[in-house]
Design a binder for these strands. Structure first.
Lengths: 183, 183
DNA sequence: CACTTTCCTGACCGATCGGACAGGATCTGA
DNA sequence: TCAGATCCTGTCCGATCGGTCAGGAAAGTG
């Protein structure tokens, strides 16, 4: 009778705890038992609110994926250096807003980006990567974009600070926007 | 009776298969059963050659950690821009030589870098990070080094190509060696 | 009040996990 | 030929995994 007051809806609290768990120990590493214990409910309650472990993951990734798609759509109209700037700033903002989800997706990337349930993420990530590379056909530029994509997504989990955004944008610009003294 | 000929020592083959499994599905995600099946032996054989799953991981990380320590020692004598160049090239070479191990360590970094069994890696990684940042006290420079460290370690798993090394070194130099028009 | 819906739980299930152990092959050197 | 390592395996074990299910409490709703 002590804690009958749900400070938030139980469902939301499950998502918060699950996001942290997935981000820190990976999807396979996290167990429903531990999540339930941290939430303060029983494991069966998790499976009442969600169809299964995968459903929790899907509910977690959904909003982030939606914003990623929106970012892609916004970038589709741009080109040249301003494309890269917009891609960098948009990506950094997105990652900072969905730190745990980004770490989860990137950490377990090879795992479930192949799985059909999350294969729809792949083209979006590829598009973003291409945008970060300024749509350059050079493999070296695409590689640089991948390095920054993964590096930024993986570093933000336990970082904090106001100037985090500026620092991330700065390093990405340095690495990706090559001064056009190419030839 | 068909495959009684061990093309290499069974122990070495276990390490090869385990490295690939760990790198692709993570340490917790990999199962001894699958590794044994891929090697072509029984699960009990794995536990004959190694004290346990952790021991396989330790045997896998050991050589990579040793070379990382050697790189750190080599970098300790350097300073300034040549420190950064040496750190970048040394790190890229190291990662390319131990692709799977690097992906494993970085992918499960938050997992077992805290565990005491692998805590000894932490100072080496911190040193390398500081060297990549040119021992700059600026948080932004340290952050950039972390981004590149993780990004490079995470991207090399399924990449190939001769010019991979050059491209990685190039993007790291661009991102980390800031032209000293700082003030 | 009774009735329905929503929310939650303990108990249980089959599968799989890492690991232990006794013993069978296979090889070696005396 | 025989004894002792070395290498390997089938079988079993307890723990934990994700998931199911019948049913109890709470909260609207008439």
């Amino acid at each position: 009778m002590l804690k009958r007051m749900p400070r938030r809806s139980t469902r939301d609290e499950i998502l918060v705890v699950a996001a942290a768990q997935f981000a820190h120990v990976g999807f396979k590493g996290a167990s429903l038992q531990e999540i339930a214990a941290e939430v303060g409910c029983s494991k069966a309650t998790l499976l009442y609110h969600f169809a299964g472990k995968d459903a929790i993951l899907a509910a977690l990734i959904g909003p982030a994926a939606q914003e990623l798609a929106a970012l892609d759509a916004r970038l589709a109209a741009l080109d040249g250096p301003e494309l890269q700037v917009a891609a960098i700033e948009g990506f950094v903002d997105l990652v900072l807003r969905y730190r745990q989800e980004a770490a989860l997706i990137y950490g377990d990337a090879a795992r479930f980006l192949r799985e059909p349930a999350f294969a729809f993420l792949r083209p979006h990530i590829d598009n973003l990567c291409a945008a970060l590379a300024g749509r350059s056909p050079e493999p070296a530029d695409c590689l640089a974009a991948e390095v920054l994509l993964g590096g930024i997504a993986g570093v933000v989990i336990d970082k904090a600070g106001e100037d985090l955004r500026e620092a991330l944008v700065a390093v990405a610009k340095r690495a990706l926007i090559t001064p056009h003294d190419k030839d």
